[in-house]
Design a protein around this nucleic acid. Structure first.
Length: 423
DNA sequence: TCTGGGGTCCTAGGACCC
DNA sequence: TCTGGGGTCCTAGGACCC
């Protein structure tokens, strides 16, 4: 087994630089929704010491001093470039597991002349065809492939491609001893702190820990990590898209909200978005959840967060899902709080064709609902999201998020197309 | 003034049953 | 006076990932 973990360098920042070459060589950060936190940094921004997830408002003076370019997220652009990258990668192996917008696993067992050589060709090809640079890590398990990818990016001697199969066991252990345990996939902040109290500081320490003891002290998840570090495959490879278990749509508001009416609009909009995602994946939902919360960073304001779920006849109809979500919202809402965020969660998902008809179901109404939803989706795809929507969503909402620094959707929005200027 | 959104898996504990 | 125990299912919450 030779698994490759391939992931794009500074993906969102690289996408922006690809379409605005004047940004190349400059410190660029991409911000989360509402222009809240840093979610991607160019190499130059990393060199300035800007940490991942830093709140943007804490960086303004640093930004002024160094001319940092901050951009709102442009997911339409990143999604489109991601699809191009994934398509090129799929050409190198029939077994591809897309793990996130900017990374995937490829099974390169049997690649000629060797998995490592194939990894180097992949890196060159994606750069040539799409213009994005990436790191490639190869190993016998997902956890080791992830680790190799980390080495590929952080250790210049690998030039972006690290194949553990080309190294001696001693050399591999030396790399594991160099990496802090927090760099291991599946070990976050909490676990790092607890592991350190047990004298486990490096990836090598974790590899050498007794799996049984780890299971007893922590969990079966971390035991698997230990076994994977030792080359034992515990995490399966899933080619093809996984079926979702939940679909969530939520947003922080552009400003705090105290009244019920705008909350109602927001929840209607989130239910609409969730229902669109649901239909795009050919699923129906058997349960709807809604939640609201105040801003946890505002110690000066009273705090409240609450969530509620309710079962329903499995459906993908925006109207029914929004109705149910609004019923939940009426139960959740308490006057006197400044709400910062709300969301809608769809669970108990199942493929549309496996839906059991209800005992008293009206077949004609169902057909009508499906036709209406299909028409809505088609219109909104052709003329833009929100062209046809429920009245309860409202117009020009006060709760809408901020995105003041977004670049044009060069590749997906006709109005914002990238046009080469003559002369 | 301003702190993301969307997922997964595991575990503990309560409800319920026999 | 004396008041079981084991299994299953569900949910909330915690941890992680990008």
């Amino acid at each position: 087994m030779s698994l490759a973990l391939i992931d794009c360098n500074n993906f969102y920042a690289s996408c922006e630089q690809l379409f605005q070459p004047r940004l190349i060589g400059r410190p660029v950060v991409v911000l989360s929704n509402n222009d809240g936190c840093v979610v991607a940094r160019s190499a130059e921004a990393k060199a300035l010491g800007i940490p991942m997830a830093a709140p943007w408002h804490t960086l303004t003076s640093l930004a002024r001093r160094h001319g940092i370019v901050a951009l709102s997220s442009n997911y339409a652009l990143y999604g489109d470039l991601s699809a191009r990258v994934m398509k090129v990668l799929a050409g190198f192996s029939p077994a591809q597991e897309v793990y996130s917008i900017d990374e995937c696993f490829l099974d390169l067992a049997g690649a000629q002349p060797s998995p490592g050589a194939c990894g180097r060709r992949i890196r060159d090809e994606v750069r040539r065809l799409v213009g994005i640079s990436m790191g490639v890590g190869l190993g016998p398990t997902k956890t080791l492939a992830k680790f190799a990818n980390h080495c590929a990016k952080k250790r210049p001697e690998f030039a972006g491609v690290c194949a553990l199969g080309e190294l001696s066991p001693t050399a591999i252990d030396a790399l594991l001893a160099w990496a802090p345990v927090s760099e291991v996939w599946g070990v976050g902040g909490r676990l790092t702190a607890r592991l350190q109290t047990l004298g486990i500081h490096t990836a090598l320490d974790l590899k050498r820990a007794a799996p049984g003891r780890i299971r007893k002290t922590f969990s079966v998840t971390l035991e698997r990590t230990v076994r994977e570090l030792n080359g034992e495959v515990c995490l399966g490879f899933a080619a093809g898209p996984a079926t979702r278990k939940q679909i969530l749509s939520s947003r922080s508001f552009g400003q705090l909200i105290t009244e019920f009416a705008p909350l109602e609009e927001a929840v209607t909009a989130y239910a609409t978005r969730a229902a669109e995602k649901l239909r795009r994946q050919g699923l129906v939902a058997g349960s709807v959840g809604a939640f609201v919360q105040t801003n946890p960073f505002r110690a000066d304001l009273p705090q409240y967060h609450a969530a509620r779920h309710c079962p329903l006849e499995p459906t993908a109809d925006t109207r029914l899902l929004a109705q149910a979500a609004l019923r939940l919202l009426r139960n959740l809402y308490r006057p006197g709080f400044a709400y910062q965020k709300a969301g809608v969660i769809l669970t108990n998902l199942l493929p549309e064709e496996k839906r059991q008809p209800g005992l008293f179901e009206d077949g004609a109404a169902l057909t009508g609902s499906q036709a209406l939803m299909a028409a809505m989706d088609q219109i909104n795809r052709a003329y833009g999201r929100g062209t046809v929507k429920l009245g309860a969503e409202g117009n020009d909402p006060r709760w809408a998020m901020r995105a003041e620094r977004r670049t044009p959707r060069y590749t997906t929005n006709l109005e914002e197309l990238a046009v080469a200027k003559a002369g």
